[in-house]
């Protein structure tokens, strides 16, 4: 598996990361190196091995259904570039 210039641009755009042409140029071989290495791992037969979901045997912990948080509007809005009347505001997005 390998990526080309168009794929790198698409991945960048999906991740909302701006990349220059020079950067794309550098990134194509870099990413292909990584993909090549991953492919090498594929040579090991893992058909009898369960996918590892955690490094220590541990179960997902659940919490009780009680309200213990929220009501911190000022903190939530504190870093917003723009907020009005308790709302975040963003450039108009309408379909």
């Amino acid at each position: 598996m390998s990526v080309d210039h168009a794929t790198v641009r698409k991945i960048a755009s999906l991740a909302r990361i701006a990349v220059t042409d020079d950067q794309v140029e550098a990134m194509v071989p870099e990413l292909n190196n990584i993909l090549g290495w991953i492919e090498q791992l594929g040579e090991v037969d893992t058909s009898a091995v369960q996918p590892m979901t955690a490094v220590i045997p541990n179960a997902l912990r659940l919490r009780d259904d009680v309200v213990t948080d929220g009501d911190v509007r000022d903190a939530v809005l504190k870093n917003a570039p723009q907020a009005e009347q308790g709302f975040f505001t963003v450039p108009k997005v309408i379909e």
Partner: peptide, 8 residues
């Protein structure tokens, strides 16, 4: 009220 039921 807006954003009052929001945790971090």
């Amino acid at each position: 009220e807006p954003n009052t039921q929001v945790s971090l």
